[in-house]
Amino acid sequence: MGLVSINRIYAAISAVVMAFVLLPLVAVVWVSFFSNRILSFPATGYTFDWYVRAWAQDSFRNGFITSVETALVAVVISLVLGVPASLALVRYRFPGRDAIQTLLLSPMVVPGIVGGAALFMAFIELEIILDMDISGSLPGLFIAHGLIALPWTIRLVTAALVGMSPSYEEAAQSLGAGRITTFFRVTLPIIKPGIVAAALFSFVISFIDLEKSIFLVGPGRTTLQIALVSYLEWNLDSTVAAVATVQILIIGVLLVASDRYAKLSRAF
């Protein structure tokens, strides 16, 4: 077989696979403009009505707001905890370093549904002890989502730190800068792309989480993903498609933005 024909075979297979991967995306965006009352093909006409309806629906609007709030807090938690931890993991050798690295990345490995169930039980137990409302409250959700985002932040920030020569920090310190000054004036500006990527990525990972939040939402405190799933259990119409399209748009923009800062494929 000639080289050219082999290349063609790979290109052809890739095209088919990519079409399969992108098909759901395209389908959902397309359907969101259908004017059919009951979802069916082909379209009888096109309209923007579903977007108005989706926003008018309490569960979607509130879910969207809760999701954005939660994702922002998750970003803050994961950066505040994750950046120093990454610094420790990359720049220092200490006993138990590998164990701590494994532990910090473990929220990625423990299945969302298992971790979510465990957290839910722990919250209820705490509620009984403290006589406070935690599960189904926003702080409970924030903790869970901070946990989801943390390992991704650590991955991206450690990758940025590994790519940066420690001699810059050594130079600053040899010139008399303290550790904290060195971090804010030298290290931070250099690894900024990694941190921006980590923040954007954490936001997205938290925003789309379903498995872990499913136990932790309560009445009036539902994330957008849970609102979507509970709607889908009983209905399938273009309202969902409109919500999905908005979500795809937001995530697409964030993704393209973060890809400018750091190669996202490095996070996996």
Binding site: V28, I208, L232, A241
Partner: peptide, 18 residues
């Protein structure tokens, strides 16, 4: 990566449509 970060809820909805 974009479909990967679409979220399971949205992607599943899309397959229901298809």
């Amino acid at each position: 990566i974009l479909p990967l970060l679409m979220g399971n809820a949205v992607r599943t909805a899309a397959w229901m449509v298809i």
